[in-house]
């Protein structure tokens, strides 16, 4: 099972995403922004970082990278695609997902372990979670505030396309941002397309896949959290099925 991870100039989290794919039991395949070749992968991860320095808008230039034409075609053909943080921004700029990300409402970069409620377990990336399960994964961004017009938000809610919602329980953050870390509309942390194969989220599941290197799990000890692994094991299961 080959799962590709795209590296753009300025991508930071490609190696952790490749490692998450490996730990989940798939073969990680590095994809390069400048090659319009998906190397026979069966799923794709657009990882976090600051592709093209976030120039113009986060994700705005990456959208035109040679590899993205193939990614868009594959996504429209049903291939599972996951966008994490900057990857989510790229998916919005590409219009594979609706809405956009603007600067955090408190205007600061925020890094913390973030509780999320899993609200849709039918996507290609979330079948290994329980409906309503609260998971904890790292969050780190400055442009993380999800916005969309009221019609789009109503559509996302009506169709159950909000996949992850910010939940209370983080250890720190600016006053007024205890649960929702950035002012995102409807506390949205992640969404999916109508077909459920494309998922984007701002927090970082790829940093919570191996005990000893993950977030602090209350009651279990420091760095023990592996809640992010479920996204990668889910896609493996959906590819085998």
């Amino acid at each position: 099972m080959r799962i590709g991870v795209v590296t753009f100039p300025g991508t930071l989290d490609d190696r952790d995403a490749l490692r998450a794919v490996r730990i989940a039991g798939a073969e990680p395949v590095a994809l390069w922004h400048g090659e319009d070749d998906l190397l026979d992968v069966e799923a794709i991860v657009l990882p976090g970082g600051f592709s093209y320095g976030d120039y113009l808008r986060a994700g705005a230039i990456s959208r035109f990278a040679p590899v993205m034409g193939k990614v868009v075609d594959a996504a429209k053909g049903g291939m599972p695609v996951l966008g994490i943080c900057n990857g989510f921004q790229v998916l919005c700029e590409t219009h594979l997902l609706p809405g956009a990300m603007i600067k955090n409402a408190h205007r600061s970069f925020l890094c913390r372990d973030q509780p999320l409620t899993v609200e849709n377990t039918r996507t290609a990336w979330t079948t290994d979670y329980e409906q309503g399960q609260v998971i904890r994964v790292p969050l780190k961004n400055q442009d993380g505030q999800y916005v969309a017009d009221e019609r789009t938000l109503a559509e996302l809610e009506a169709e159950g396309r909000v996949v992850f919602r910010y939940a209370a329980g983080a250890t720190h953050g600016p006053a007024g941002f205890e649960a929702n870390p950035n002012g995102s509309r409807h506390d949205i942390a992640g969404i999916t397309n109508a077909e459920g194969n494309v998922v984007g989220l701002m927090p970082h599941p790829e940093h919570a896949v191996e005990a000893g290197f993950g977030p602090d799990e209350p009651g279990a000890g420091t760095r023990t959290g592996t809640d992010g692994l479920g996204l990668f094991s889910s896609v493996l299961r959906s590819l085998v099925a």
Binding site: I102, K103, A105, H106, R107, Q145, V147, D149, G183
Partner: peptide
């Protein structure tokens, strides 16, 4: 310009 209905965090700063 940011749309009128969109909060502009930079402008607020």
């Amino acid at each position: 310009m940011p749309k009128p209905e969109i909060l502009d965090p930079q402008g607020k700063a």
